[in-house]
Nucleic acid binder design. Structure first.
Length: 508
RNA sequence: GGCGGCGUAGCCAAGAGGCAAGGCAGGGGUCUGCAAAACCCCCAUACGCCGGUUCGAAUCCGGCCGCCGCCUCCA
């Protein structure tokens, strides 16, 4: 079965067929740069990152463009409040956004055009629209004439009459129709402005995406994504202005919208409401993998709520996946496994199939994650058996571990833990000194420049000697002290192992 | 008023006609010097409520209740 996805335009699931076989042009609506991004943005960009990774996994050549809205009412307002230029504000938040996306391991788009960089293209489109009767100028403003575009309302599933009925804002009397939207706004005093055939002004919000999309991907694209909140009016308007200008439809073959994330308390997470969880704060408390696993554990069209309890639970689940890879490595490392084939090789290929079936079904990440857990359990069973002496069930372990890594990788999960944090590293060195002082015979050596990994290895070997000598007081002390530093010691049949406790709850 | 979504175990969350995935938490075991991890077993006769269609319904139809989003700020 091939990939099928829900198309907002038809409100149905459709087989994914691209304009050019084997390649995908993908445009995702980026953030307005008036403030920091929150976990709702993270959800959207993590999801579309998975869309891209999966398309690439399936062999598509993906071209991915995401805009930065650097000129818009809120940024202008903010610039005036702070006495800074819109460019300074945009620059600050662009850098921050990219840093945060990198931290979340969202693959960078191929292009991140800014609205202010494509103004010539916008003007070209607006001129074309006016020439064809789809737009008109009033006092330096230019509006799109919605009544001229018969398909207006198709994406959002409403008619102009319905929208008029519910219009909740004051109508600008200069507009021909209340729903006509601004393509270009004449500049007011103090606002940044650009020269245009209609005098100095600045672009309306919607035109940028049409301009960028056409400039970087072409007049028709395969996939256009964004949060459910931009379906109307933003995407509806993009379709109208783009298709009216090019005369080609559809502007985008597939419209994909993710449901919005809810805040810990309340219903809507919005920057202007002040009830958001900033990505920066989330990253301070949770590892990227924890955030990704949490986000992807709910289907992208189901609204989820960011709560400590739910994110913590994702963190514990992540530990489980990590344990499986650690077990696999232990088995593969300790005893060169002659069995290339075996039950786990079969399991690996079954898992790939199941994973693809889940993802082909409108990006069913929850089911895909279930496949990962199922595979992990199988690896753990076989590992336990192998460590107990029965190697037979571990045949094909290499393939199972590889499959787990690969499939987790499609979701952007690294599964391996973060590096030892500086604080823990310092603590480890201190613990080593402490144990050497306590019992130089069991913990020999002194001073020396060790890195944290070496120090832990020395501590564990010393602890092994202590256990053999039945000095459980010392052995337990090592384990307890390391535990305080966030390092968990596990005694396996073949020796001891350590791991970092996953960063998943820093409430304390 | 119009359009749309949601309601599944203590929590998170899949499933969309064939007899309730997965994760977290919890209980009981195995293993361990003790732990930890892992593994095994248990944990929704039940999917907001009421009807209907069907051999069979969380899944389809009708009605009702509750919650939410959008209808020119918004991922």
């Amino acid at each position: 079965m091939g990939l099928e996805m829900h198309n907002s335009l038809s409100r149905r699931r459709e087989p994914f067929v691209t304009l050019v076989p084997g390649s995908v042009s993908m445009y995702v609506c980026g953030p307005n740069l008036y403030g920091p991004a929150h976990v709702g943005h993270a959800l959207s960009y993590i999801f579309f990152d998975v869309v891209r990774r999966y398309l690439e996994y399936k062999g598509f050549q993906v071209r991915h463009v995401q805009n930065f809205t650097d000129i818009e009412d809120r940024i202008v307002a903010r610039a005036q409040e702070e006495g800074r230029s819109i460019f300074a504000i945009a620059q600050e938040y662009i850098e921050r956004f990219l840093r945060e996306m990198d931290a979340l391991r969202v693959q960078r788009a191929h292009h991140y055009p800014r609205a202010t960089e494509v103004i010539p293209k916008m003007i070209e489109i607006i001129l074309g629209l006016i020439a064809r009767g789809y737009a008109y100028e009033v006092d330096g403003d230019v509006y799109f004439r919605v009544t001229s575009f018969s398909r207006y309302g198709l994406l959002s599933g409403r008619s102009l009459d319905q929208m008029q009925a519910g219009a909740r804002i004051e109508v600008d009397e200069r507009k021909e129709h209340p729903m006509d939207f601004a393509l270009w706004k004449a500049s007011r005093s103090g606002e940044p402005s650009w020269e245009s055939p209609w005098g100095p002004g600045r672009p309306g919000w919607h035109i940028e995406c049409s301009a960028m999309s056409m400039q970087f991907l072409g007049e028709q694209i395969d996939l256009h994504g964004g949060g459910d909140d931009v379906r109307f009016p933003h995407h509806e308007n993009e379709i109208a202005q783009s298709e009216a200008y090019t005369g080609k439809a559809p502007f985008a073959r597939f419209w994909v919208h993710n449901a919005l994330m809810k805040p810990p308390v309340g219903d809507e997470m919005h920057r202007h409401l002040g009830n958001f969880v900033a990505i920066r704060d989330a990253l301070a408390r949770y590892e990227p993998d924890v955030i990704r696993l949490f986000v992807l554990s709910a289907h992208y069209r189901t609204p989820s709520r960011w709560t400590d309890e739910a994110v913590d639970a994702a963190g514990r689940g992540l530990d489980r996946l990590r344990a499986a890879l650690a077990n696999a490595d232990t088995v593969l490392g300790s005893d060169p496994l002659p069995l290339q084939d075996g039950p786990l090789a079969t399991k690996a290929s079954e898992s790939r199939t199941a994973f693809e079936r889940a993802m082909d079904d409108d990006f069913g990440t929850p089911a895909a994650i279930a496949v990962l857990f199922d595979l992990a359990a199988e690896i753990n069973r076989a590992s336990g058996s192998a460590m107990g002496g029965n190697v037979e069930p571990a045949g094909g372990m290499v393939h199972a571990a590889a499959a787990l890594r690969t499939l987790a990788g499609v979701l952007g999960l690294r599964v391996v833990p973060d590096a030892i944090p500086p604080g823990a590293a310092a603590a480890v060195l201190q613990i080593l000194d402490e144990m050497r002082a306590a019992d130089p015979a069991l913990f020999p050596g002194e001073g020396g420049q060790h890195n944290a990994g070496e120090a832990i290895a020395l501590l564990l070997s010393g602890r092994g000697r202590a256990r053999e000598a039945r000095r459980f007081d010392l052995a337990d002390r090592v384990r307890a002290r390391l535990g305080e530093a966030g390092i968990v010691v596990e005694d396996l049949p073949g020796g001891s192992r350590w791991r970092l406790v996953s960063r998943r709850d820093a409430r304390a």
